[in-house]
Design a protein around this nucleic acid. Sequence first.
DNA 1: TTGTCGCCTTGACACAAATCAACCCAGCGG
DNA 2: CCGCTGGGTTGATTTGTGTCAAGGCGACAA
Lengths: 245, 245
Amino acid sequence: MQDHFAHIQCGDCPIRHRAVCARCDADELQKLEQIKYYRSFQAGQTIIWSGDRMEFVGSVVTGIASLTQTMEDGRRQMVGLLLPSDFVGRPGRPTAAFDVTATTDVVMCCFRKKPFEEMMSTTPHIAQRLLEMTLDELDAAREWMLLLGRKTAREKIASLISIIARRDAALHLRKKTGALSVDLPLTREEMADYLGLTLETVSRQISALKKDGVISLEGNRHVQIPDMDRLLEEAGDDSDGGMLV
Amino acid sequence: MQDHFAHIQCGDCPIRHRAVCARCDADELQKLEQIKYYRSFQAGQTIIWSGDRMEFVGSVVTGIASLTQTMEDGRRQMVGLLLPSDFVGRPGRPTAAFDVTATTDVVMCCFRKKPFEEMMSTTPHIAQRLLEMTLDELDAAREWMLLLGRKTAREKIASLISIIARRDAALHLRKKTGALSVDLPLTREEMADYLGLTLETVSRQISALKKDGVISLEGNRHVQIPDMDRLLEEAGDDSDGGMLV
DNA sequence: TTGTCGCCTTGACACAAATCAACCCAGCGG
DNA sequence: CCGCTGGGTTGATTTGTGTCAAGGCGACAA
């Protein structure tokens, strides 16, 4: 990925925080150590409610969390998927704008918000780093708007699978050639909420892609991708670069 | 609006740049004056092509511009609407991610990118300001994802009208009580591209809302809103706060 | 073993929105 | 005056997804 993803490991934390980048010096890292703590959440547990006062910012260390929005009548839309190393929080904002839910068991590395914000105002490159990350998220959200507004159900499914495959590959630093396989970290219903579909349509389209040989399944969750280019073509994706989920 | 929208006028520029806020001192403003210039665009003209190298950042001064994405087969999705005072550009990024098109005649106040970025790295509050603005845009994009993924055509139209009314009211500092009226700055087709619909559906739903007395029309573009709460109810909107377009 | 539960699949049918098509109207230039 | 063009409306029909309903499968507990 691009150089702006350069990041280093933060103390004894097993993941690399993208917000705490290689530009941080030893002093800064030590300050971060002092305000950091870990929190665990069980699958299904709500990490943050929309509108809640947030007392921390942080990164996902292990597990998957999702950002969702719900209408009064129960219609739900997932607006973001948080994978390990993804940043959570809104520096400079007192409250959360969306629900954050643990999809699997989740461990988060949190920084107390107040001191983190103080660091931000004295350490200009942290604000710049966060700005870059937020711009990436904004691009991703806008890409997703194209998917939600204009793609067919089949294209939506193909897009989702290829994006998870890409993120997965980036995370595990696997090579991108040959046959890939991915574990879908979401239930059919969660995929539906992400894609603006119903779970039945998701199921049907996955079956259709399987029947047409675009993917093959092993169990319900494990997907093999014999030909990534074919999948991308099904996704209707011209831009196969840069997209974050 | 919230205090983070606090902003001051920049030199002789007729609008207030939200990125150049009250925290800027005289020195900083003078630096900005030196790197600023104006550009005009005609309605329909493309301001920036996706992928182009961008040599400036700036704000819309007058007119309306739109951020769009197009698939190879021509399907289009508008991913943002840029009204006067909205910021354009991606500090820290060399290229544009989406097409920017002038919907009406547009005047932009631009800052040369390189010196602007240099100012950013020496003036921490500008990066923080931009981070806050980008977080707002991200929230708006995510709200729009709910609209695109889960709302009906009727709800989409009602949402669009109420959002334009709100932005308009904020811009002109009108009071929000009593009957409102708004000019739709978009053609039916542009609305369709924004809402993930076809222009025929847009037209039909506007007619339906008119028939049901939720809005009334004067010409094609001018909308009166007898009862804003009724419109918000039609929009299925719980959160009537904060949303930017 | 049997029952239950969560997750998933598949079928039949309904319906909202897309598609295709005709037409209206205002503005404008010749 | 005319015809033309761009934007907008409305109708008829098709179609992609949603909705409702039944059932499969694996995990787990009694």
